[in-house]
Amino acid sequence: MSTSRTIQFTLNGRPATADIAANETIVDMLTNRFELRGARESCGQGLCGCCTVTVDGMAVSGCLSLAWFLDGKSVETVEALSKGGVLDPVQEAFIEAGAFQCGFCTPGFIMMVRQLLDAHPDPDEDEVRHYLTGNLCRCSAYPEIMDAVKLAAAKRKRASAA
């Protein structure tokens, strides 16, 4: 029992170690100790989704989760999605559909859409709206985000068929 400890976990596929305080959130740790910018705190209440990361494959709000509990887990941020200049199909779809303006909420949306498509590879409109209602875009690129989800679903289907 203590106010700080060393955690070992996997971050975007690589082993990582961090000395963290018990009151440190995941987004604070990623920003301050790993210089990652993709997950960012905005509403601070888990409502906007800007800080979305996955822990063992499950999306969580990085601003409402303590880094303490990451020990032994695998964390993925938007930074993991593109490799060697090749984007994830969801990222490609966001560009092609023009699904963002200022871009601040975009990594969070992309992380959620990936989980959405994992759970529902061919979601209907109602499923998409409900699934993404915990992500806020004040530029309101919502119509284009709907387009991007459809496009990404098609891209993933093509990729898995190939």
């Binding site: 888990g46 409502l47 989704g49 979305t52 499950m58 999306a59 969580v60 709000s61 409402l64 989760s65 959620m112 989980q115 409900h130 699934y131 209602t133 915990g134 992500n135």
Partner: peptide, 12 residues
């Protein structure tokens, strides 16, 4: 569950 908070909250 469908309208309870959001997916990330339901995950934890």
């Amino acid at each position: 569950m469908k309208t309870l908070a959001n997916v990330r909250v339901r995950n934890v």
